[in-house]
Computed example of a mutant assay.
Amino acid sequence: MAQDATFEDGAEQPLNLGAMDAGDLEVISSLAQDAVFPASEMQWDRAARRFALLLNRVRWEDEGQTRHAAERVQSVLVFSNVQGVASQGIPKGDPDTVLSLLQIAFEQTDAPSGHVTLTLAGDGAIRLQVEALEVGLRDVTRPYVAPSRKLPRHPN
């Protein structure tokens, strides 16, 4: 039986990244691209002004992809300083709906405030109004072989 790879196999470490500007956010966006998550794994803590997602993200940074099948890892994506959350194209009332993250972008409105847009497959989107950009992406499990055993593809 095939065994999942571990971070140690490739001398790799779990990701723990932060973003405080749009350039940093582009890095996090590229690493979170094609992450999937059930709608039940989104949480907005209004009192703490924090919006978080538990993602199953593709390990795009995996240097050992030639040794094993494509991998995913569970990661927490956290946005701080959130003043409001809006969404469109996400079915309400079905926590088992699986969503796929395509891109994360920041649009500054009145520095340092702005909007973070999480673009989802199928024309869905989540928009966060933030006082200032502060984002964290942290791996919280060991990598596992992606059920499809393949990397997602985006035809041009």
Results as ranks from 00 to 15, higher is better:
residue 51 F to C: 04
residue 30 S to E: 15
residue 45 D to F: 03
residue 41 E to D: 14
residue 45 D to N: 14
residue 40 S to M: 05
residue 37 F to G: 08
residue 42 M to P: 04
residue 51 F to G: 04
residue 49 R to Y: 00
residue 48 A to N: 06
residue 36 V to D: 13
residue 47 A to M: 10
residue 56 N to L: 01
residue 44 W to A: 07
residue 53 L to R: 00
residue 61 E to M: 01
residue 57 R to L: 04
residue 31 L to G: 15
residue 43 Q to I: 03
residue 56 N to I: 05
residue 31 L to I: 14
residue 36 V to C: 13
residue 49 R to V: 02
residue 61 E to D: 13
residue 31 L to N: 14
residue 48 A to R: 07
residue 57 R to C: 03
residue 46 R to P: 00
residue 59 R to P: 00
residue 60 W to M: 00
residue 49 R to Q: 11
residue 55 L to Y: 04
residue 41 E to T: 12
residue 52 A to N: 02
residue 53 L to M: 05
residue 34 D to L: 11
residue 55 L to C: 05
residue 48 A to F: 00
residue 45 D to E: 09
residue 63 E to S: 09
residue 62 D to P: 06
residue 50 R to D: 07
residue 57 R to W: 03
residue 52 A to S: 13
residue 63 E to H: 05
residue 56 N to F: 03
residue 60 W to D: 02
residue 61 E to S: 02
residue 57 R to I: 03
residue 49 R to I: 02
residue 58 V to Y: 07
residue 39 A to N: 09
residue 46 R to A: 11
residue 33 Q to R: 15
residue 50 R to L: 07
residue 43 Q to Y: 13
residue 40 S to V: 10
residue 55 L to G: 09
residue 32 A to P: 06
residue 40 S to T: 08
residue 58 V to I: 10
residue 58 V to A: 01
residue 52 A to W: 02
residue 35 A to N: 14
residue 42 M to V: 06
residue 52 A to Q: 08
residue 31 L to Y: 14
residue 31 L to W: 12
residue 34 D to T: 06
residue 39 A to V: 09
residue 30 S to N: 15
residue 48 A to M: 02
residue 33 Q to Y: 11
residue 33 Q to N: 15
residue 42 M to F: 07
residue 34 D to V: 09
residue 50 R to H: 04
residue 35 A to E: 14
residue 60 W to C: 00
residue 53 L to Y: 01
residue 47 A to E: 12
residue 41 E to L: 07
residue 38 P to H: 10
residue 44 W to D: 04
residue 49 R to N: 05
residue 63 E to Q: 11
residue 63 E to V: 03
residue 41 E to K: 08
residue 59 R to I: 00
residue 37 F to R: 08
residue 58 V to M: 09
residue 48 A to D: 05
residue 33 Q to W: 11
residue 34 D to S: 13
residue 62 D to I: 02
residue 43 Q to L: 14
residue 31 L to Q: 15
residue 63 E to Y: 01
residue 55 L to K: 08
residue 33 Q to F: 10
residue 59 R to S: 03
residue 45 D to G: 07
residue 56 N to S: 08
residue 32 A to Y: 13
residue 55 L to M: 03
residue 56 N to C: 03
residue 58 V to Q: 09
residue 59 R to W: 00
residue 37 F to S: 10
residue 54 L to I: 08
residue 58 V to C: 06
residue 35 A to W: 15
residue 43 Q to M: 11
residue 46 R to N: 07
residue 43 Q to R: 13
residue 46 R to L: 05
residue 47 A to P: 01
residue 60 W to I: 01
residue 36 V to W: 15
residue 58 V to S: 03
residue 54 L to M: 03
residue 50 R to G: 06
residue 55 L to S: 09
residue 43 Q to V: 08
residue 35 A to K: 13
residue 49 R to E: 08
residue 49 R to D: 05
residue 41 E to C: 12
residue 35 A to R: 12
residue 58 V to L: 03
residue 56 N to M: 06
residue 40 S to A: 12
residue 50 R to P: 04
residue 50 R to Q: 12
residue 37 F to K: 06
residue 30 S to F: 14
residue 42 M to Y: 02
residue 37 F to Y: 14
residue 38 P to N: 10
residue 50 R to V: 06
residue 34 D to N: 10
residue 57 R to A: 05
residue 45 D to H: 09
residue 32 A to M: 11
residue 33 Q to H: 15
residue 40 S to D: 10
residue 49 R to P: 01
residue 47 A to R: 13
residue 53 L to F: 03
residue 56 N to K: 08
residue 62 D to M: 03
